[in-house]
Structure formats: structure tokens, C-alpha cells
Amino acid sequence: MSETWLVVVFVGAGTVAIKSAGPVLLGGRPVPARLTGVVELLAPALLGALVAVQTFGDGQTLTVDARLIGVAAAGLALWRKAPMLVVVIVAAAATALARAMT
């Protein structure tokens, strides 16, 4: 098997295993009361990290580029209570515009 297909097979099998672990082992069982507070905060913690890394991350370096303008525009749109579709389009358009001008 070529290296390419080895990577495809191992990454695929590993990812399927990681994704299944929680739902297969714990599926349908309520969270123990002591842990609900922790699990509740998992979403905001991971979402905060995703926003930060996808705005400033470029491989292993941090950069400030046109994405920040898009995310700032999205923040403004959210503050004006714009629907999600508008927020996403505003972000892409502001970033594309900033790139076209530089």
C-alpha cells in the first residue's frame, strides 16, 4: 500500500474511533449531577478557543491579518442582532474586501 493510502486508512480509523468513544460508551446516559456544571462549560470553552485560533492562528504562529477585520465585522453584525447567515456573509465579504485592497 502506498504512503498516501496508509495515511488515509490510519487517520480515518483513528478519527472514527475518537468520534465514537463518547456516544458509544456513554450514549443516552444522563451526566452525573456533580459534572453537569463542568460539561455545561465545555461548549463555551471550546468555541472561544476555536474563534481565537481560527482568527489569529497560522500553523504554529499567530498573525493579525484580514480575518480579524471579518471577525470584527461579524461581531458588529451580532451586536446589531443580525441573523447568522448575514453574520457569516458579512465576515467573508469584509475579509475579501480587505484582501482586495491590500
Binding site: 455545561e40 462549560l41 463555551p44 471579518g70 453574520v87 484582501r99
Partner: peptide, 30 residues
């Protein structure tokens, strides 16, 4: 500009989760 669509979406999904101080602190710390 499609690479900015993803952090914008995650921001849009994060905002309604922040109903009190604890999720805000978790998002900032994360």
C-alpha cells in the same frame, strides 16, 4: 474571505451561550 466565515460562525454560536459570568469566563480562558 471564506476562511473568516468559520471564526465568524463560531462567534455567532458562542454569543447566545453566554448567559452569565461563568460561560463568559470559560470562553475567555479557553
Amino acid at each position: 474571505g471564506l476562511d473568516a466565515a468559520f471564526p465568524a460562525l463560531f462567534l455567532a454560536l458562542l454569543v447566545p451561550q453566554i448567559r452569565s459570568r461563568k460561560p463568559l469566563a470559560a470562553a475567555m480562558l479557553g
